Amino acid sequence: MHRYFKIYKPYGYLSQFITNERPRKKKKLLGDLYDFPEGTMSIGRLDQDSEGLLLLTTSGKVSAEITGNKVEKEYYVQVDGEMTDVAVDLLREGVEISINGKNYQTLPCEAFKLEERPVFPQRAKKIRDERHGPTSWVSISLTEGKFRQVKKMTAAVGFPTLRLVRVRVGNEQLGNMDTGQVIELHHFDY
């Protein structure tokens, strides 16, 4: 009987349960948040400085299905500056980024500027405030997931990422979960 979890991964945590680093330089791991059953794995990853919805399971088959390039993931991204319509159009069309030193053209995706600031729990590390210039929020939905892709995409159109929160994987939503909250599910809706 496989088990399924969704978690609001906090800023500063690695999307893993063990680290090969010796010593473990105060790295925060998912297992520090909840007593997950043996064999639990994260489905995909969020960078240490990214946060939001992370799905976990004991089923390798389900993990492979979700990490394949078919299930859409949506991110709310706070960027440095007032995101322009031209930049949003470029994101939609796909932009060139670097992956492992090689140029990569991202696939077309859904992107739009959020008219209202989303409400998320306060982040552990403060984000610079408006005194240092305007910020704006954009929604980006992708089916691919290259290394730091979303951050590289916003930088490629001239708007570096300040905060990245994954809000949806397939039909599973972050909703109004609290940072670090874990919910066990009967299955995933993807």
Rank of each mutant, 00 (worst) to 15 (best):
K27W: 11
Y13R: 04
L53T: 05
D49S: 12
R22M: 08
N69L: 13
K25L: 14
L56F: 00
Y34M: 06
L30K: 00
S15Q: 02
A64I: 05
D32L: 07
G44R: 03
Y76H: 15
S15M: 07
F17T: 04
S63F: 01
L29F: 09
T57E: 02
T67G: 04
L55Y: 06
K25H: 14
K26Y: 13
M41A: 08
K61L: 02
T67M: 13
L53K: 03
T40R: 06
E21H: 09
L29E: 09
L46A: 07
D32I: 05
L14W: 06
T57H: 04
G31C: 07
Q78T: 09
N69V: 14
F17L: 01
L30F: 00
I18T: 15
T67V: 11
G31N: 10
G44N: 06
Y75A: 10
L14N: 06
K73H: 07
E65N: 14
S59Q: 08
T57Q: 00
K26F: 13
G44P: 04
E72D: 15
L30N: 01
L55V: 04
L54H: 00
E38K: 02
T40C: 05
G12N: 15
R45I: 09
G12M: 14
P37W: 08
S42P: 13
L33T: 06
V71D: 02
K25N: 14
T40A: 00
D32S: 04
E21F: 08
I18K: 15
L33Q: 02
L55W: 01
P37Y: 11
L29A: 11
V71P: 08
E72K: 15
R22P: 00
E51H: 08
L54C: 02
L14T: 08
L55C: 09
G39N: 10
G68H: 13
V71K: 10
L53P: 05
L53G: 03
Y13K: 02
T58H: 03
Q16N: 07
V62A: 07
S15C: 08
P10W: 15
K61C: 04
T40L: 03
I66N: 05
S50D: 10
G39I: 07
R45S: 11
N20Y: 01
E65C: 09
T67K: 10
S50T: 11
R24Q: 07
I66E: 01
V71N: 02
D35H: 06
K73D: 10
E72P: 00
Q48P: 00
P37H: 08
Y76S: 10
L56T: 07
K61I: 06
P10K: 14
R24V: 01
R45Q: 10
Q48M: 15
A64N: 13
S42H: 04
T67Y: 04
G68F: 06
T19N: 08
P23C: 05
V77Q: 12
